[in-house]
């Protein structure tokens, strides 16, 4: 059972929203006592996902949550956009694949940096990515 202890919602519409969002994620991670390395991994993953959301989904909403499971605390981030959706998720998750001009490591890289990674996408409706980084994960 994952309990939500604290929750914050931020909407991301333009590039300039990204840095304040990253700072908010950092604040939450610091608050639960996450180590610097884990903080850096979480914020980097968040940065990749929020960029994808802006670039492919035209912006959207992010949810930052402090969650607890048993004795462990963690941060859950949800990225929701109402963009065109991803046609082939397994292809999008492959290292080196990009439908744009980027390096194609955003999604698979973000997945490697966190403990739990979930992606759901419906064509024409949008994409939701949810990640969890445990404090001691």
């Amino acid at each position: 059972m994952k309990l939500v202890l604290n929750k914050d919602v931020m909407s991301i519409e333009k590039e300039q929203d990204v840095v304040p969002f990253r700072n908010r994620v950092k604040e939450y991670a610091v608050k639960i006592g996450m180590s610097l390395v884990n903080q850096t991994k979480l914020i980097t993953a968040a940065s990749e996902l929020v960029r994808n959301m802006l670039k492919y989904g035209g912006g959207g909403v992010t949810i930052i949550e402090v969650i607890s499971q048993g004795r462990d605390n963690g941060i859950r981030l949800v990225f929701q956009d109402k963009g065109p959706g991803i046609k082939d998720i397994s292809l999008a998750m492959k290292d080196g694949y990009s439908s744009g001009k980027s390096l194609g490591i955003g999604l698979p890289g973000a997945k490697r940096l966190v403990n739990e990674f979930d992606i759901k996408s419906t064509l024409g409706e949008g994409t939701t990515v949810s990640i969890i980084k445990w404090k001691n994960g």
């Binding site: 390395v37 850096t40 290292d95 890289g109 490697r112 940096l113």
Partner: peptide
């Protein structure tokens, strides 16, 4: 480069 950044970069695949 900060150590935490270096660790993250490699795990990210850069």
């Amino acid at each position: 480069m900060q150590p935490a950044v270096a660790i993250t970069l490699i795990e990210l695949g850069l």
